[in-house]
Design a protein around this nucleic acid. Structure first.
Lengths: 244, 244
DNA sequence: GCCAAAATACTTGTATGCAAGGGGTTGGAC
DNA sequence: GTCCAACCCCTTGCATACAAGTATTTTGGC
């Protein structure tokens, strides 16, 4: 097992410092929450690559906190299947498990088609916010800004759940989507190279606005499973990021 | 806020003792895991009722562990929305939130209909295990054993996800189903008084075996939302268990 | 030079002590 | 009698020290 480079984690503690400025506002944010958010985004954005060895003591020193809140953050990441901990052995960033990827696609497809059905059945289908998010995504694509593109993607899907009347269900999807996010980031150049995803989003919004239930569901479903197509290529490029 | 009675928690530590006997087998189970399982089942089975005040120090003494693993267990329960923690104020068993109940029904319906669709599309639909589980549930109903009935219910739904090819997705459903479990236990007499639920299960298995996709989906969906019907009555009987 | 065994260094899990803050209670003033 | 303020107790959050165990390394023997 190769040890994590200090350089990579320097980025983490920089982001921590920027967050520290914000929370001076009013509330006293818990350290464990802050550390958890930091590590989670670091893993999702591949600043901590799958297979990285994480030492509790090392991390606590670099983040400037004690082991107690750090361990609480790691414990949550274990529940999210983003980190593996073996007692008296070590802690690593989990590798991408293809079985979990398949399950995540299934979960996403099932919940998003159901949400689309609900949103489609509503009397008043206000797609104004969806159009706005699409505009943001158009800009992100034009600027070739991967982070902004992913953020708008999340906002889009979240809005669909809000229209369906179950806004918090998105958190569930997001949780099981962590594996997918790492996959998508690995083939980010392809994402930014074509307008395919954006075009599908536009078409989904069109179908929702028009109340076209069945075509919409079909499109949402194929959209959810589309990520599976890039697995072979990404796996060939980065075999060390995948499990078994 | 009334304090938790020692009597109720005595049952918890008894179960803990029985678990301790088991884990002498081979592995060294983590204390935090054991405590988490204990508290989770105590909450789901209403031995710890919604609104109960939980003191970390008190719990740690009664369970015979230190605050560290206890806090890790509580932290996980917070993520499961089964416990509310307010810094420097206190910890309570969360009350039943009707919005969360609705979302849980939606999630369960979406995932279980999708799983039924998958299982139905399989070439080889082996409903042998399902029939066996139904027999167990029949016995539980005859013996008026609520715990056994709920256990077989879980086994049944879990098996459907296994047949669909996504066995671990059940964990997701189970997580969002915690609120529903408490509701169902509150109207347990009604459940045991009629064969309605069991009959529906039998019919679902029949439809799956026969490959009747659309009728099966309809039944699974209505089955998932059925619990909503008991909300008004249960809430009238135990208003203090509900939020807002 | 190679192999084995013991010691050492590092890992996570647990227990305990301290700090910060909110809520109830009690005393006093009006 | 009522209201306000100060105090005390109890709460959770965090930091640190200790315990148990594993992997690596080193050292002694052959």
């Amino acid at each position: 097992m190769e040890t994590t480079t200090g350089h990579r984690l320097t980025g983490v503690s920089e982001s921590v410092a920027s967050l520290r400025r914000v929370d001076r506002a009013k509330v006293r944010e818990r350290i464990s929450d802050r550390v958890h958010d930091e590590l989670e985004s670091a893993i999702r954005e591949l600043r901590l690559v799958p297979g990285s060895v994480l030492s509790e003591t090392e991390l606590s020193v670099q983040l400037g906190v004690s082991r107690t809140p750090l361990r609480e953050a790691l414990s949550r990441l274990v529940d999210q299947r983003l980190v593996d901990v073996v007692a008296q052995v070590g802690t690593t960033v989990s590798r991408i498990d293809l079985a979990q990827v398949g399950e995540a696609c299934f979960v996403r497809s099932a919940l998003e088609t159901a949400a689309f059905r609900r949103a489609c059945a509503a009397e008043h289908r206000d797609v104004g916010r969806l159009r706005a998010v699409l505009a943001v995504q158009e800009e992100a694509l034009a600027a070739q800004d991967g982070d902004a593109f992913f953020d708008s993607d999340e906002a889009l899907h979240r809005e669909v759940f809000r229209l369906a009347g179950y806004p918090d269900v998105w958190d569930l999807v997001r949780g099981s989507k962590s594996q997918l996010d790492r996959l998508r980031r690995l083939h980010l150049p392809d994402v930014l190279a074509s307008r395919e995803i954006l075009e599908e989003h536009i078409r989904i919004v069109d179908l929702l606005e028009a109340g076209q239930l069945l075509p919409g569901i079909d499109l949402v479903e194929s959209h959810a499973y589309k990520i599976l197509g890039v697995v072979p290529r990404v796996r060939a490029e980065h075999p060390e990021y995948f499990a078994s």
